[in-house]
Design a protein around this nucleic acid. Structure first.
Lengths: 163, 163
DNA sequence: CTGGATCCGGTAGGATACTG
DNA sequence: CAGTATCCTACCGGATCCAG
């Protein structure tokens, strides 16, 4: 492995990492941060050590597969720490590393912003859809074009409990 | 549509939007922000009005389809403004709306962080891979387990040029 | 020039069942 | 409890052609 030659190091240093470039390693990092579950997992694990089951309960809707995968990625990237306590049954705790704790405060504002601006965005979406589908033949396909309306419906609070 | 009853409004207000809940509309917003291209597009369009072609050039590696799709989503959500100037040929400009300008400063730190911490993360990944594949039978399947090594290799700047 | 429409393969990711 | 293994589908996203 480690195909990084001296020439490559120089090339990388010259451009000083720009995520706008497709092949730049920082792009990979940026895309990791843009992963569907990374933000949520980071947020959940930030409040101190969390066990696997706790995370699964806290992050509603995540499948064991995705949770494990995400945790593995974060562990590999050095953002979370995985501690196995050899007992019966086994106990595994996840917590942020210093690097993760450095990143975390940049994530929360996003989650907070999302929660704070839901209404504004929903209004914008409705306005857009009205504008767009105004002269549509027979309504119907609103969901097709842009999956209109959000679908808050039921299930609200299934997991809200602790955290 | 607008199935939001008074009872629902109350329920929503009570929990005040929590992205940890699967069905919460803020989760949808959060996932939009976690889209692969949203961050980059937002960053690119933040520096003032940009034409479609300019964005395509600036964000290396994005296909016209994905760029259009992302811009549509952002427009629908009220984050970017699309202005069509009826000329020949047509001219289309994209720029941030006030809402988008409000969100933008939360995105850039992420991009900056990614660019700043590439080295730390790459080091962590290498260390992890060494630890993990240390006592593997015959190397070989390194890519299977975790797509080891990053793959910066060549292709650096291939797309920076045109497109 | 902008960008819609269509085809299509790869894979992300969800559900479920099973194991140390 | 903490995952892994398997299956399977939806949709991401690239290529291509077309239209205003």
């Amino acid at each position: 492995m480690t195909t990084r030659t001296a020439a490559q190091r120089r090339a990388e240093a010259k451009v000083a990492y720009d995520a706008f470039m497709a092949a730049c390693p920082s792009r990979k990092v940026f895309e990791m941060l843009s992963d569907k579950w990374v933000g949520l997992v980071l947020a959940a694990v930030s409040a101190g050590p969390r066990r696997y089951g706790e995370l699964k309960a806290e992050i509603a809707g995540v499948s064991p597969k995705m949770l494990t995968q995400t945790l593995r990625t974060l562990e590999r990237s050095g953002l979370v720490d995985r501690t196995v306590t050899a007992s019966v049954p086994v106990r595994v705790d996840y917590e942020l590393t210093p690097l993760g704790r450095d990143l975390y405060p940049l994530i929360t504002p996003l989650k907070a912003w999302a929660e704070a601006n839901v209404d504004a965005i929903r209004a914008a979406e409705q306005a857009y859809d009205l504008r767009t589908f105004a002269r549509e033949p027979t309504g119907a396909s609103a969901a097709t074009g842009a999956s209109a309306v959000i679908g808050v419906t039921a299930a609200m609070g299934v997991t809200a409990a602790r955290q």
